[in-house]
Design a protein around this nucleic acid. Structure first.
Length: 433
RNA sequence: GCCCCCAUCGUCUAGCGGCCUAGGACACCGGCCUUUCACGCCGGCAGCACGGGUUCGAAUCCCGUUGGGGGUGCCA
């Protein structure tokens, strides 16, 4: 029995593109599910694509996604002899000819070239519509077609899984493979494109296509991979959010939907929120660390303190970068007061009374979450206000904002002294205006 | 222009001739829970592009129309 062998073959053109990441993932899923091998092949036949930092980018992104490969990466820039031999062979067999310094493959003017695509069914091209394409440039380097056909053959690739934008090169690659003397063809599967709201292929110019930028915003690798798997494929049991190993066990190339899929950031973030909530509290506060540097107070954070308060915002965080901003009042000397929040709740007749009462009550009561809760509830009641209303001035005074983590837990963590200071400051500020 | 492909709720999908009065998820809208926001729970809105066939029976098969996309480089 022959083992399944796949390859992910990106061209190094900067940060890994979402579409490429999805292609890498689907290749990986097939390899996992079939117990086969997955090879990473860098398509850098073009000299400017051989820059090391571009290639490092790919490695870094794939490593982050935890998409692993078998063996060392194959660099096409290091296999030029192989391609030259192939081209020379085609010339001497009369299958290719020199044209203006370049070498072109002679495409028959009759007949058809077709294959049975695993996701799209039979695809047929009439040879008369295919031009004599270039297999070696005038500068002596091999083109994509040549390198692709030679490598897939030489590396024993059994499944070619790639984007739909490559459908039209497939007949050319098939011809070259036959010209190489191959008796068999790999299984081809062309994945649907990932498109934007305008239903156009994601493009670098218009869309946020860099995998890296989602990572920087605090999308977890596991969530990204989970979401990507859902683009063009759906689990048979309707359970969408699940470990990638489970997806690999369920995934079938033939089940992939051939129509284009829109990249929906909202859904990605929803899934990311699921993954964040599934973390332990320790994992979550640890995961927040890289995003601290965006905050002015972030450089001097006490990590014990952070792990104490981070759980308060865990279920309120969809992407990690949203975490630290919700925690600022714990680490700032004085909270940054949101102007519109202040105007909304501090300009009522009750606000000063609530602050006044709380200032007195909080000075002596037992510093306990439940006691604080009950105390504020009673204060509100004495002014004929529901707790939801009564807590607002205190919340603004203590946290600076109208919304945030649970108030009593926050005050408890902050400590009596700080809370009293902030309430007093707000009270004074009110009196002054 | 030419070649190739695609077509189920706004979006991602399930469906592979009867189980469909079309299921799930995200989004959206209500409600409950509730110390704000969130989480959670309950409910709602909303779709087989259109027209012909085939069949006892079609979202599912065939043809056409329309609409959309991809490609058309000595890029990959």
């Amino acid at each position: 029995m022959s083992t399944t062998r796949l390859r992910f073959a990106p061209a190094p053109t900067g940060s890994l593109h979402l579409g490429s990441a999805r292609t890498a993932l689907f290749n990986w899923l097939v390899a996992q599910g079939s117990g086969g091998q997955l090879i990473l092949r860098i398509e850098d036949t073009n000299a400017e694509l051989t820059r090391p930092e571009l290639i490092d980018n790919i490695y870094r992104s794939l490593e982050w996604l935890q998409i692993g490969f078998d063996g060392e990466p194959v660099r096409q820039s290091e296999r030029t002899d192989l391609y030259n031999d192939a081209v020379e062979g085609w010339i001497s067999d009369g299958l290719a000819y020199v044209d203006d310094g370049a070498v072109r493959f002679r495409v028959p003017s009759e007949g058809t070239t077709s294959w049975n695509d695993t996701v799209r069914g039979t695809v047929i091209f009439e040879n008369q519509h295919i031009e004599d394409f270039v297999v070696r440039r005038a500068d002596g380097t091999a083109t994509f077609f040549t390198a692709n056909a030679v490598d897939d053959f030489d590396l024993g690739i059994t499944h070619v899984v790639r984007g739909e934008d490559l459908v039209n090169v497939t007949p050319k690659v098939i011809m070259l493979r036959q010209a190489l003397g191959a008796q068999d063809m790999p299984e081809f599967a062309h994945l649907p494109l990932i498109v934007n709201e305008q239903r156009k292929k994601l493009s670098k110019r218009r869309d946020d296509v860099a995998l890296e930028s989602y990572r920087e915003r605090g999308v977890l690798a596991a969530a990204m991979v989970n979401y990507l798997a859902l683009l063009g494929w759906g689990p048979p049991d309707d359970i969408e959010v699940r470990p990638i190993e489970e997806i690999a066990a369920l995934f079938q190339l033939a089940d992939v939907n051939p129509s284009p899929a829109m990249f929906d950031v909202k859904k990605l973030e929803s899934i990311n929120g699921d993954y964040i909530r599934a973390m332990t509290q320790e994992e979550f506060s640890e995961a927040l660390t890289p995003w601290l540097k965006n905050e002015i107070w972030g450089s001097s954070v006490d990590h014990d303190r952070l792990s104490q308060v981070a759980p308060l915002v865990q279920e309120r965080t969809r992407v990690l970068s949203e975490g630290p901003p919700q925690l600022d009042f714990f680490f700032l000397e004085t909270p940054e007061i949101d102007q519109s929040a202040w105007e909304k709740v501090m300009t009522t007749a009750e606000a000063p009374l609530i602050l006044e009462s709380a200032k007195m009550a909080f000075a002596t009561l037992e510093w306990d979450v439940d006691v604080l809760h009950e105390s504020l509830r009673a204060i509100g009641e004495s002014h004929d206000m529901k707790l939801g209303k009564a807590q607002a001035p205190i919340r603004v005074a203590v946290t600076g904002r109208l919304v945030g983590p649970p108030l009593f837990e926050s005050m408890h963590a902050l400590g009596r002294e700080t809370v009293l200071e902030r309430i007093a400051a707000a009270h004074t500020k009110l009196g002054a205006t």
